[in-house]
């Protein structure tokens, strides 16, 4: 099965890249973009077939490597 992990900066953590993107969008004429936050999308192909076990394992991967929980939060999506 597949799992998809979204890693994003926690609210309140400054995101200079998001701010730069917001500035570039404004230069391109896209008005009204109030905020931009940039994150990462990580797709995993797992041998595991039990969604609950798969999710628990990805959760552990997030805590130990995929996200730095000092500044980032993560969301896991398990796909069939």
């Amino acid at each position: 099965m597949k799992a998809r992990v979204q890693v994003t900066l926690k609210p309140g953590v400054l995101d200079p890249q998001g701010t730069a993107i917001q500035g570039a969008l404004a230069h391109l004429g896209f008005a009204g973009v109030r905020d931009v936050r940039q994150g990462k999308l990580i797709e995993l192909e797992l041998a595991e077939t039990d969604p609950a076990v798969g999710r628990a394992s990805v959760e552990e991967m997030c805590r130990r490597l995929l996200a730095n929980t000092v500044i980032e939060s993560y969301a896991i999506e398990v796909l069939p």
Binding site: V13, L14, P16, Q17, A20, N68, V70, I71
Partner: peptide, 16 residues
């Protein structure tokens, strides 16, 4: 920091 031996984290420079 990533290994957990020190608190905190080093992020992208504010100036980029």
């Amino acid at each position: 920091c990533e290994a957990g031996l020190l608190p905190g984290v080093l992020m992208r420079n504010a100036s980029l």
